[in-house]
Computed example of a mutant assay.
Amino acid sequence: MANSAPPPPAAPSPASKLVRIIVVVILALIVLLGLAVLITWLIIKPKQLVYRIDSASVHNFNLKNNHLNATFDLLIKAHNPNSRISVYYDPIEVSVAYDGQTIAFNTLEPFHQPRRNVTRLDATLVARDAALSGALSSDLRVQKKSGNIGLDVRIKARIRFKVGIFKLKHHTLRISCSPVKVQMSSLKNFETASCDLDW
């Protein structure tokens, strides 16, 4: 008795062929995009922006009836170490806080920071009749007698990176510098304060 030949395999339908082609094309695009991003990153070699407070002092300090009047002068150092990336800053919000409470605020002008550049920003923040709790007032009086006040400096700005002729989308940059020992006397040496970035 002769064995019957097995039936030939069913030919793949045109729909399944199309699905396979689409999957292969998508995977190829993902691989190419990944390679493009990797090559761009290797060429640009982006480095973290660096910020610190180089000096901080307070003038016209007057704390009366739990209300504070004072002028804070800050020198902020912004360092862009990148050789192929420049940075555009929108208006920069700078605030000074004590024990979590904002006591002074100001806005700095926008600017463009070139590649491999260090920019120093002078910021003057004025506390006008800032209301404090009794506990905060007592703490501030004690710190004033010691010759310096430990404050938090917060910086917020919308920035854009420029790579070659391309400007990338806006990012919100948040910088926190703490503690900043604000000097009551110009005779004391200021200890620079480093800052942390939060994107």
Rank of each mutant, 00 (worst) to 15 (best):
S86I: 14
F61P: 12
L108V: 11
N60E: 06
I53A: 10
G150W: 02
R116A: 01
A56S: 14
R141P: 02
A15F: 09
F105K: 02
L108R: 11
V19R: 15
M184Q: 10
R141G: 09
Y89K: 01
A135D: 10
F61E: 10
N69A: 05
P9T: 00
L33V: 05
L32F: 06
K47F: 01
A11V: 08
T172S: 11
P14G: 13
I159M: 08
P8S: 06
Y98A: 08
F111V: 00
I155G: 11
E191M: 09
R141K: 11
V25M: 14
S133W: 05
I165C: 01
A193C: 07
E109Y: 07
T192Y: 01
E109A: 10
S55W: 01
A78I: 15
H112W: 08
N106G: 10
W199R: 02
F161M: 04
H170M: 02
V153T: 08
Y98T: 05
E191A: 09
N66T: 00
L18M: 05
R158S: 13
H171W: 07
V163T: 13
V31C: 15
I21H: 13
T102E: 08
A15E: 09
K188E: 09
P81E: 14
N60S: 09
N148T: 09
R20K: 13
A11M: 03
V180K: 03
V163P: 14
L38P: 00
P6V: 06
S95P: 04
N65A: 00
S176I: 02
S178L: 02
K45F: 10
S57Q: 12
V23H: 15
R160A: 14
I155T: 13
G164L: 02
F161S: 05
L140A: 06
R115Q: 14
N3Y: 04
K17H: 15
N3K: 07
